[in-house]
Amino acid sequence: MRLLLIEDDRGIARGIQSRLEESGFVVDMVHDGQPAEKLLAQNKHDLVILDLGLPGIDGMTLLNRFRQTNRHTPVIILTARDELDDRVQGLTSGADDYIVKPFEPAELEARIRAVSRRAGAHGDLPRPEVSVGGLRLSGVDRRIFNGERALEVSPREFAVLELLMLRHGRVVSKAQLQDHLTYFGGDLGDTAIEVYVHRVRKKLENCRVEIITVRGFGYLLQAIAQDAPSAAS
């Protein structure tokens, strides 16, 4: 899942970004209202985390403008403003949730997942386009292609490969994969994750990417250099 974090306090923003990326999210970050508006217009994110006290364009104005053109992408307001009138205005303007600082990172993660589940019930959220080696994740089609050929994968196999592609070059833990797969139902243990990773590996045999097991940590997806032997284990 790709998030856009709009927060003018760079220290707070870096802390949020680090925590969310450890949990398997891809986080783009911006600190000013004007560049934030340009990023929002590109519609490349699954969810927006929005501070209200922004330079350039304040958060409430940004939210109102965004909702004029996009009614589906979830927005969570994250702000120090705790007055009832601010909460009411934020939610009325189109925010899906409102969190007051200071907050616990675990609560923010839980709110992100809850809001995303609710939004998903009303249709597919926009997804990014990601390429690794000759493999391409199509956000529009919700499919993965090897060159021009679509890979035949089950929904859970797709979810495994989707997260590995979104975090390519970085280790993805089994816990992160388990959490990502909860959207498809069921409580999956370590053995089930290993089975799905094995199935995905088999389907990548003719692709220029490989899944490497980083023992004790998780899995890592990377492109294979031309003529280089596979290092998957």
Rank of each mutant, 00 (worst) to 15 (best):
E162Q: 01
A106N: 11
P126L: 01
R156M: 12
A95P: 03
L135N: 01
L151D: 00
E83A: 13
E194G: 01
R201M: 06
Y98H: 05
A159E: 10
Q176N: 15
R170G: 05
Q176G: 09
S173D: 02
N146I: 06
L177H: 06
H168G: 00
H168W: 14
V200M: 01
P126V: 03
L164W: 05
F103Y: 13
E194A: 04
V197N: 02
L125T: 04
V132W: 03
G120W: 09
I76F: 07
F145D: 05
D190H: 10
L84S: 07
G139A: 06
R127C: 01
T92A: 11
A95I: 06
H72F: 14
A119K: 00
E162S: 08
L188S: 04
I144Q: 04
R113T: 12
D86R: 02
D179T: 11
T92R: 14
G133D: 03
L188F: 14
R81S: 11
L188G: 00
L125Y: 00
S173N: 02
V100P: 03
I112W: 00
R156E: 10
G186W: 07
L188K: 07
E104C: 01
I144M: 00
S138R: 07
L84N: 09
V115T: 06
E107S: 07
S138G: 02
V200K: 00
A80N: 11
V88K: 07
R156S: 07
G185S: 08
F145R: 01
D86F: 11
R117W: 09
D85I: 15
Q178L: 03
S116W: 15
G169P: 06
Q176K: 04
E157M: 05
V195P: 09
E83H: 15
V172A: 02
P74Y: 02
K101M: 04
G133L: 02
H198T: 15
P126C: 02
K174E: 13
A192H: 15
L91P: 02
R136H: 12
A175T: 15
H168K: 08
Y196K: 06
L78A: 08
H198Y: 14
S173P: 10
H168V: 13
S154M: 06
E162G: 05
L84R: 08
P102T: 04
I144G: 04
S131C: 11
A106G: 09
R117F: 11
V160C: 03
A106P: 00
V115S: 01
S116K: 10
D97F: 12
D82M: 10
